[in-house]
C-alpha cells in the first residue's frame, strides 16, 4: 500500500549542492593560502620574457615587464580576499549592532538607523567608495575602510527585519511571560534565529566587497600600481589589449569572476540548507 513511502536516494539536490559548495570553498581557500605563500620572485620582472602568450611554462602568459601573469593573478586575488575579509568583518559588525539596536530600541534609534541606511543606499556606491578611499589616502588602508563603511546597509536591514520578526513571534512573547529574562530569551531564541541569517549575509557580502575593491583599484583610487592587485592588472591590460595581448585581461578577469560566483554560490547554498522551510526543495 505505502509503496512510495520513505524511499531515499543518496544523490539528491541537497547532496549535489553540498558538493558544489565544497568545491567552491576549496577553490577560494586554496587561492587565498597559495597567494599568501607566493614570494615576489615568482612574478619578478624579466625583460627577456616580454609579452609571451599563454604556454605550458607561463599559463596565463607574461606582461610588458615579463612578469608571470598566473602568479600575479593568484597573488592579486588573494590580496583582494584579505581586504574582503577585513572589510566584511567590520561591516558585518556594524550591521549586526545597528540592526539589533534599531529593532530592540525602536523609536528614534530605529528612525536614525533607517535614515542612515537609506542615505547610504541612495548614494551611488562606487562614488562613495572612491571618495572615502581617496580621503583616507588610498592604499590598502583607504580601500579597506572604504569598503567596510559602505557595505553594511543591506545587511542591517535584513538583521533588523529578522530581529523584529522573532521578537514579535508568539513563542518569544510567551517565553517572557514564562519568566525568562531578556538575556535568556536572547540566547535561547533570538541569537539562534539571527545567526544563520548573519552567516549567509556575510558570505554574500564578500563578492560585493571584492568586486568593489577591484573596480576602485581599476579606476586608480585604490591599491597602488606596484601591488599585484586584480584591479591594477586589468587597468594595465587596457593599454595593451588594443595590440592583441588578450591574455592580460581575459585570464585575471575570469579568475575574479569565478571567485565572485563561487562566493555567491556558497551564500545561496547556505541559505537553502539552513532555512528550515526549504525542506521540500
Amino acid at each position: 500500500m505505502h509503496k512510495y513511502h520513505k524511499k531515499s536516494r543518496i544523490l539528491n539536490k541537497r547532496v549535489a549542492l553540498l558538493i558544489t559548495m565544497i568545491i567552491a570553498a576549496v577553490y577560494l581557500v586554496g587561492i587565498f593560502i597559495w597567494g599568501c605563500c607566493i614570494g615576489e620572485d615568482s612574478y619578478a620582472v624579466n625583460f627577456g620574457n616580454k609579452f609571451l602568450p599563454p604556454s605550458a611554462e607561463h599559463w596565463f602568459g607574461t606582461d610588458n615587464l615579463g612578469r608571470d601573469m598566473f602568479f600575479r593573478s593568484i597573488k592579486g586575488l588573494s590580496l583582494s580576499m584579505v581586504i574582503g575579509v577585513i572589510s566584511v568583518a567590520i561591516s558585518s559588525v556594524i550591521a549586526i549592532v545597528m540592526g539589533i539596536l534599531s529593532a530592540v530600541f525602536g523609536g528614534w534609534v530605529d528612525k536614525v538607523v533607517n535614515w542612515a541606511v537609506d542615505l547610504c543606499m541612495g548614494l551611488p556606491h562606487l562614488v562613495l567608495l572612491i571618495l572615502i578611499s581617496f580621503m583616507l589616502g588610498k592604499g590598502v588602508f583607504g580601500i579597506t575602510i572604504a569598503a567596510a563603511v559602505t557595505h553594511w546597509p543591506s545587511m542591517t536591514r535584513m538583521i533588523r527585519q529578522e530581529v523584529l520578526q522573532v521578537r514579535n513571534s508568539q513563542y518569544v512573547q510567551a517565553a517572557y511571560k514564562m519568566g525568562r529574562s531578556r538575556w535568556q530569551v536572547a540566547i535561547k531564541h533570538i541569537i539562534p534565529h539571527i545567526l544563520p541569517v548573519y552567516f549567509i549575509g556575510v558570505t554574500l557580502l564578500f563578492p560585493h566587497c571584492i568586486m568593489h575593491e577591484s573596480a576602485v583599484t581599476f579606476l586608480g583610487f585604490g591599491l597602488p600600481r606596484e601591488m599585484p592587485a586584480i584591479g591594477v592588472i586589468l587597468a594595465e591590460a587596457m593599454t595593451h589589449i588594443v595590440t592583441g595581448k588578450w591574455w592580460l585581461a581575459v585570464f585575471p578577469g575570469i579568475m575574479l569572476l569565478i571567485a565572485v560566483i563561487f562566493f555567491d554560490l556558497i551564500g545561496e547554498g547556505l541559505k537553502n540548507l539552513l532555512n528550515p522551510h526549504t525542506g521540500n526543495e
Binding site: Q170, Y171, V172, A174, K177, G179, H189, H193, P276
Partner: peptide
C-alpha cells in the same frame, strides 16, 4: 518573572520555536 496568568494560544504551531 513567571506570570501567574498564562495565555494558551489558538495555533500551537506558532507558539513554539521551530528551531
Amino acid at each position: 518573572g513567571y506570570c501567574p496568568v498564562q495565555l494558551i494560544y489558538q495555533h500551537p504551531e506558532l507558539s513554539v520555536n521551530p528551531r
